[in-house]
Amino acid sequence: MVLPATIILFVVVAIPIGYGFYLSLTSYNPVETTGPRFHGLAGYAEVLTSAEFWRALGVTGAYAVGTLILTVPAALGLALLVNGKFPGVGLFRGMMYLPRVVSLVAVSMIWLWLYSREGFFNYALDLVGLDPVEFLTDESTALPSLIVMRAWKALGGSMIIFLAGLQTIPQELIQSAAVDGAGRLRTFRHVTLPLLMPITTYVVVVDLIYLAQSFSEIYILTSGGPLGSTTVVNMLVYKQAFENFQLGEASAMAFVLFCMIFALAYANVRLLGRSKK
C-alpha cells in the first residue's frame, strides 16, 4: 500500500535530488551538445566566492527577517487582544485569515495596483502632501514594499497559531498571578510570554524556512530588480538556470540554499526538543 506513494516520491524527489547533486558538480549548458562536464566542487567554489550569490543571500535574509519583525509582534499582540469571546469573534478571525487563503500570485496582483503610480499608496501620500513614490521600481523602496505586502499576507495565519498557543495556557496560572498582585504587564512578561516561547520559536523558524524560498511575488512585482535589489536566492537560481542556461552553477546554488534551510530546520527540532523537557 505504500508502493504507489513510494514510487512517485522516488521519481519526483529522490532521483531529482541525486541527479541535481550530480549536476551541481558539473558545468552544464543545454545549448551546447556536449552534455554535463564534470568538474567536482569547482561549481561550489564559484558560487561561494560569487558576490552575486552572497548579495542574493543577504536580500533573502533581509526579506525573511524584515517580514518576521513586522509580523510576529503584531500577530502576538492581536492574539492577546482577541483571545476570548466577544461579539463577532468568528467573523474577525475568518477575515484575518483571508490573506493566508488567497494565493500569493493573486495577492501580488492587488498590491501591483496598490503600489502603482495611480494606486492607493500614492493617493494616500498625495493626501498628506507628499510626492509620489515609485514603490516597486525605486531601489530604496522595492524590498521594503515587498516586505510590507508579505507581512500583510502572513499576519492572520501567525495570529491563529498564537491564539492556539494561548488557549493551551491554563487560566489558573493567569488568575493566581493576578491574586499575587501582578498587573497585566507583569503577568504577560513572567507567565504568558515564557509559556509562549515554544510556539514563538515554531512560528519564527517555520516562517523563516518558508520565506527563504520566496519566488512568485518577487517574480511578478519586481522580477528581482531594480538593479538586483530584490533578487533573492530562488530568483537567482531561476535566472541562472532558465535565462542564462547555467544549469550546473544554478544546481550548486540550490544545494547551498538547501543546506542552510536544513540547518534551520535542524535547529528548530533541537530548540523545540529542549523546550519540551
Binding site: 532521483i15 531529482p16 541527479y19 541535481g20 549536476l23 527563504a212 519566488f215 544546481s251
Partner: peptide, 24 residues
C-alpha cells in the same frame, strides 16, 4: 526507514528539485 525518508522528502525545498525535475 521508509517513513523517515518520506519525512526527509518533506523538507527538501522545491528549488532543489526544480532543475533536475525539469530535465527529467
Amino acid at each position: 526507514p521508509l517513513f523517515a525518508a518520506t519525512l526527509g522528502a518533506a523538507m527538501v525545498p522545491a528549488v532543489v528539485q526544480l532543475i533536475p525535475l525539469f530535465l527529467v
